[in-house]
Design a protein around this nucleic acid. Structure first.
Lengths: 230, 230
DNA sequence: AAGTGGTCTAGACCACCTT
DNA sequence: AGGTGGTCTAGACCACTTA
């Protein structure tokens, strides 16, 4: 009997999680080719488990594969970004109405707790934690009615936009707006005011999209003017 | 130079499309195990391309895989079905408001055209066509603002519920309700009445869910009483 | 302890691009 | 034609189950 380090995980799962993480944290960027031969060297396993990992990531939308041409990290332009935020609005505006209709004091307490941790993350200047807590907050809204499938879709939209958020950062005013907006949303939920919560969410998400799209356009302009190398 | 039958498609893509189709049309059912060795025999190719096809289908939600235990067709219980219909409501209630705000006569004309073909499909008793046209109608609402990602999500919820619809069929009254509901929705859109369109969509989808869930419960009861073999 | 069936590797194969 | 790199096969390997 030999030691077990394995815990029921297979190579393709491990590699999938590593590649996903490398994409989300910006190690592989937007449009980068993911060549099997490179990845074979990088991870020390053979081609097939890597291909399987890429197939799954394609299913999650992070990676694009085409026949006989291999894989690359999905390129995210402004139109695609806009689509992600529209999907978030659709899901959250709908689910927050349901939540507001039947939120308990405990639900509200949990949301306030996340809010507090967000304020700490901003004080500590941790964009990565802020992003995680933002998904936790919005996930509480969408998953509150035990709709795990909807929560998974929301989470995938975060995976797709997080690389850009990490890359472009956030101004202090933009960061401070997050807990302010969230506090107002929590109040509306606590008062069982679905329509107001829904409207506040919509405005909050519009603002988040505008901030990010502006930052993107700024970089694009810089590249065009040759100020930063592409 | 030899002849080309290939057209740039690879084995894993072909097999993926075949398996997807076999699931959607009910050849493989709800919960069936998909054993690689069976599929190797069935399709005459080796294990790896089949595994890749299954990985992709897992990404689409049709198949569930677990480490060292292989794949099976996702089992769809009432809770999961309910989640799919909630997601549809969230997407369509949101996007129909946008569409109603700026629908042209041409948009409305195209929707009426689909409506006409639905009536023909019902007259012809073709559940499969009816289902396709239903997705086409709802896809026009969600995709109208060029949100291909949202349209893709909607389409996946159809892939997941269609097998049950084909299995349980639909009473004549249930079938007739579809074009009636759709006509009312088109009218609200034509009059640029977003809130009404949104409410009508919500009711329409609630009705569709209730019909299907009832049929499912009926079969479950029959199995429990031993009237039909499981 | 054997059986079943999923997973991984090495290397052949083949599609597509460049010259 | 040659090069690059994605795809496929055969068979070994290994996790998990049943006896």
């Amino acid at each position: 009997m030999t030691e077990r380090f394995n815990l029921g995980r297979t190579n393709y799962q491990r590699v999938r999680d590593i590649i996903r993480n490398d994409i989300i944290t910006g190690q592989f960027r937007d449009g980068d080719r993911l060549k099997i031969s490179d990845l074979v060297g990088r991870y020390g396993i053979s081609a097939m488990p890597i291909r399987e990992a890429l197939q799954q990531l394609q299913g999650e939308g992070l990676v694009v594969m085409s026949a006989n041409r291999g894989a690359s990290v999905r390129r995210i332009d402004e139109h695609f970004l806009w689509q992600m935020y529209e999907i978030r609005k659709a899901l959250e505006m709908f689910f927050v109405v349901e939540l507001a209709g039947r939120a308990t004091a405990q639900d509200v307490g949990r949301m306030r707790d996340v809010l507090g941790r967000q304020e700490q993350a901003i004080a500590a200047g941790s964009e990565e934690n802020l992003q995680k807590l933002d998904l936790e907050f919005h996930g509480m809204i969408v998953g509150a009615t035990k709709n795990e499938a909807a929560a998974a879709i929301l989470s995938r939209t975060y995976d797709l936009t997080q690389p850009l958020r990490l890359r472009f950062g956030r101004s202090p005013e933009q960061a401070r707006r997050i807990p302010t907006d969230h506090r107002a949303i929590i109040e509306a939920i606590a008062q069982h005011d679905g329509p107001r919560a829904s409207r506040l969410i919509s405005e909050h998400i519009n603002g988040a999209f505008a901030d990010l799209a502006d930052a993107m356009r700024l970089e694009d302009d810089s590249i065009r003017k040759g100020l930063v190398k592409g």
